[in-house]
């Protein structure tokens, strides 16, 4: 039986990536959630830009267009968390995880394949959202004569950064999903971590509190998404992104350790 001869593990990862992609793409909710991500993200960026463009142009507001051009992505975070969590927790909810692990018994391969497919998909959807928001919002800024060019400093980095940030968020939610194995819990924890805990830690007094706030994934990660400098309240774009990636890596390793240990 030639099939019993050990194949190189890279082949196995490639096959698992392909199967995980079929899984993700064959569920309708994936596409609805991705659509929600684009519409919410690009839509809010466009609306907010439309609202503030006049005041910025007249000098009534001291802000710059760059502060708003990726603003709507705040809402897109919800979709990224939902898609990321569901990739793992829907399998536990339906018992599908047993089929998955019967097909690919090496659990690190399963997690790696899920992370690759998720991050690739969310990178593209995040990128589409960011560019759509840029073109939508910039139409208003251009109309007021304060348009931003893609060639302006940090603009391209922030739009691509939006894709990278969303990719990371999906993996983060998937790792949480693997730890708690429940859709409701994973989405709640993921959203709380990004939207609530990142704000609440600001209440910790002193320099310690400032650092904790800056290092929270929902605060460190978005540094790469905004084209303007928020000074010392935020880490620099690439420093922040590095912290964010490291946090996701640590959480994923913890999730993998449990994934390997637990019965399916």
């Amino acid at each position: 039986m030639s099939t019993l001869v050990a194949a190189p593990s890279s082949t196995s990862l490639g096959r698992t990536v392909k199967s995980e992609w079929i899984k993700l793409a064959s569920i309708r909710s994936t596409w609805w959630t991705a659509l929600a991500m684009v519409v919410l993200g690009a839509g809010f960026t466009t609306i907010i830009s439309g609202v503030v463009a006049g005041d910025i142009a007249s000098g009534k507001s001291g802000d710059s267009p760059g502060e708003y051009i990726t603003q709507g992505l705040i809402f897109s975070q919800i979709s990224a968390v939902v898609i990321g969590a569901l990739v793992v927790t829907s399998e536990y909810g339906t018992g599908l995880i047993r089929s998955t692990l019967a097909a690919t018994p090496i659990r690190s391969t399963v997690l790696a394949a899920k992370a690759l497919v998720l991050s690739g998909f969310l990178f593209v959807v995040g990128l589409v959202t960011a560019f759509a928001g840029y073109f939508g919002g910039n139409a208003f800024f251009r109309h007021q004569g304060i348009g931003i060019s893609l060639g302006d400093p940090h603009i391209l980095r922030s739009l691509i950064g939006a894709g990278l940030y969303m990719a990371g968020l999906g993996v983060l939610a998937a790792a949480i999903g693997l730890l708690v194995r429940s859709t409701a819990a994973a989405i709640s924890i993921g959203l709380a971590l990004i939207f609530i805990i990142g704000q609440v830690v600001q209440l910790i007094p002193g320099t310690f509190g400032e650092w904790v706030t800056k290092l929270m994934p929902g605060n460190a990660g978005p540094a790469i998404v905004v084209p303007v400098d928020f000074g010392e309240h935020m880490l620099g774009p690439w420093t922040g992104f590095a912290v964010y990636v490291a946090e996701i890596a640590v959480l994923s390793m913890a999730a993998l350790a449990l994934f390997r240990k637990r019965d399916a």
């Binding site: 194949a7 096959r15 079929i22 064959s26 309708r28 995880i97 089929s99 097909a103």
Partner: peptide, 24 residues
């Protein structure tokens, strides 16, 4: 296995497609 281990939102064909892909 006793639990059907199928996602209710996925078609029978797609369920078998991902399984086939996973093992070449």
């Amino acid at each position: 296995l006793e639990a059907h281990a199928v996602h209710p939102g996925r078609s029978a064909r797609d369920h078998l497609r991902w399984m086939a892909a996973s093992n070449g």
